[in-house]
Write a protein that binds this DNA or RNA. Structure first.
Lengths: 152, 152
DNA sequence: GCTGAAATTCTACCACC
DNA sequence: GGTGGTAGAATTTCAGC
């Protein structure tokens, strides 16, 4: 799929603030309301825009302790792997889970209240999954950049 | 800040689909339009909801090669650290950058078209920053979960 | 904090170029 | 792919509880 300058601009705007109205964009882009509307519709229809969401401030909801947790499984039998993936999905603390190359099998991004809550997550949830080989935690000291925006 | 069941429900809905109308939520929650509207406004005003964004499908825009890049700096003099952070922010390929505990100083989440583009990013951009000590790349084989949603 | 209703603004579709 | 116009729906405000 090809995107011209206008599509790129629209995508950038909506990734910044999805409440921007077509009218505002039309004005900004020097186009009519409908022209912008149809472009947005097309981006939605083709799945380029896959979702509109509200982003929540983790500080404000007491979930600002973020860690990356790297995991090795004891074995890689397909059914155990699938079972692990299914179970890890259920944990509310796990926002992201990636199957990765390298020394570890998975990288998890975990958000909790504080170190105590993280320890409880490890002890009571994660390491209760019995095919977990090892878990290595890396704590976020500071978020330099955390963007859901991507330049198209 | 305290959230009752209704606030939690509203936050969950808006984190799933921010286009959900107040009317729909009002119906679902058994409240009036205005009641829901005022709660949403309060969540926005207090910064609990910090942003509304459109999420873009990385496959569709040819940026589905995702890597974590762990970085060590050669030294940690404050001004060099700040300079590194400032420069890394400029790279469009870097969606996230965290200062972390552990063996490495930073974890970057990088999105590009393919391995070739990633190599070019490393060679022409990242490792051109001269206080980079070492860079260790981990490639995402599969996204098991990638959620911007958090249970409040 | 909630309700119902009214004012304003946008969305979404139309005919047409 | 674009325009201008418009019906219906959504957002936003208001008086009152």
């Amino acid at each position: 799929m090809k995107f011209d300058k206008i599509d790129q601009e629209i995508l950038w705007i909506l990734q910044t603030d999805s409440k921007t109205t077509t009218k505002q964009m039309a004005h900004q882009l020097g186009l009519s309301n409908t022209a912008v509307y149809e472009r947005v519709r097309k981006l939605e229809r083709t799945g380029v825009i896959k979702q509109y969401v509200a982003l929540v401030d983790f500080e404000k909801i007491d979930k600002s302790f973020i860690a990356f947790c790297q995991i090795k499984l004891v074995q890689h039998r397909h059914d155990l792997v699938k079972k692990f993936e299914k179970e890890v999905l259920q944990f509310d603390e796990v926002l992201e889970c990636y199957n990765v190359s390298g020394e570890y099998d998975y990288i998890l991004r975990v958000a909790v209240k504080n170190m105590k809550a993280y320890r409880e997550f490890l002890n009571n949830k994660l390491t209760m999954l019995d095919y977990i080989g090892s878990a290595y935690s890396t704590f976020i000291i500071n978020e330099v950049k955390n963007s859901v925006q991507i330049r198209v």
